[in-house]
């Protein structure tokens, strides 16, 4: 059976990609942010996961309003990045994985999740920045990635409880897969931020810290929010918490989780940036 080793929650803002491309990791602005990552990288190096399921939101590279899925999932052997329009460097192709992907797709449809299934899909910074953060120098080609995109842009969006249930169904699917792969899940984005409107720049540090606290043992206290409440408490783009909740949902059913790392730093660009590593008993 495939095994879930744990989950990682991380920011995915494009400025991180730019900073890494330009070697700014040790400048005063970035140092504290990047210093949080080595322990998580070390854990990944030790655990050697075969597959990473990455929850992210597309920011208008692959999906436009003409046909915007609530939940979309990749089932391709490879994914390409492309020009996102505002000058972040394109990164090398991401390796995909079709067998577990289709197994998850089947499980999801059987359990009433109405996903859009993608056999070709451009992946944007929401997915590529976290990979580069975990494996700097774009050295992520050995890890097979299953991209899962959640609508965080245009209302109506899936509710936190639905995103959590979605993640849980994906975790159940992984556990029922007849392989011996080691799998990690990543929840990317957040935490509080607002890019648009006169309220732009809004960050809510106490709420972010509360969320990271509850992610460990009491995620149900977060899934009771509506997206409207998330916008109010965490800013218009604070709804990206849904990706963290999907990641946490995938670990539901793994018993008690060990929090191996937590850090929070703000501001990174316009956001409160959280990093969290939750391991299951399957991890070494």
């Amino acid at each position: 059976m495939a095994k879930l080793l744990g989950g990682i929650a991380t920011s995915h803002i494009p400025a991180i990609g730019v900073a890494m491309d330009q070697g700014l990791e040790n400048t005063p602005y970035w140092k504290e942010f990047f210093e949080a990552y080595p322990p998580v990288r070390d854990w990944l190096y030790t655990q050697e996961p075969d597959i990473a399921i990455v929850f992210y939101n597309d920011h208008g590279l692959e999906f436009f309003h003409d046909r915007k899925p609530t939940f979309a999932m990749g089932a391709a052997a490879q994914y390409e990045n492309a020009d996102e329009g505002w000058g972040i460097a394109e990164i090398p192709p991401v390796t995909g994985e079709t067998e577990l992907s289709w197994h998850i797709v089947n499980h999801l449809i059987e359990h009433d999740f109405d996903i859009t299934v993608c056999q070709e899909m451009k992946v944007d910074h929401g997915l590529t920045v976290p990979l580069t953060l975990m494996w700097p120098g774009h050295k992520y080609g050995h890890v097979k990635v299953i991209p899962v995109a959640i609508n965080c842009e245009r209302h109506p969006m899936p509710k936190p409880s639905r995103s959590y249930a979605f993640g849980k169904a994906i975790g159940d699917a992984v556990r029922s897969f007849a392989g011996d792969q080691k799998v990690i899940v990543m929840g990317t984005g957040g935490l509080s931020h607002q890019l648009d409107g006169q309220r732009a720049g809004f960050i809510n540090k106490p709420f972010d810290l509360y969320c990271m606290d509850k992610m460990v043992d009491e995620p149900e206290l977060l899934t009771c929010y509506s997206n409207y409440e998330l916008v109010e408490k965490a800013g218009a783009q604070g709804v990206e918490l849904n990706m963290w909740l999907a990641m946490r949902g995938a670990l539901e059913g793994e018993g008690k989780l060990k929090e191996l790392h937590r850090s929070y730093h703000l501001p990174i660009s316009n956001t409160g940036a959280g990093l969290q590593l939750l391991a299951t008993d399957n991890a070494r």
């Binding site: 046909r67 109405d114 859009t116 109506p156 969006m157 249930a165």
Partner: peptide
């Protein structure tokens, strides 16, 4: 709106 609220994961098409 009502469908997404009820847990149907629609793809919503403006074109």
């Amino acid at each position: 709106n009502s469908l997404v609220e009820d847990g149907f994961d629609m793809t919503i098409c403006q074109e």
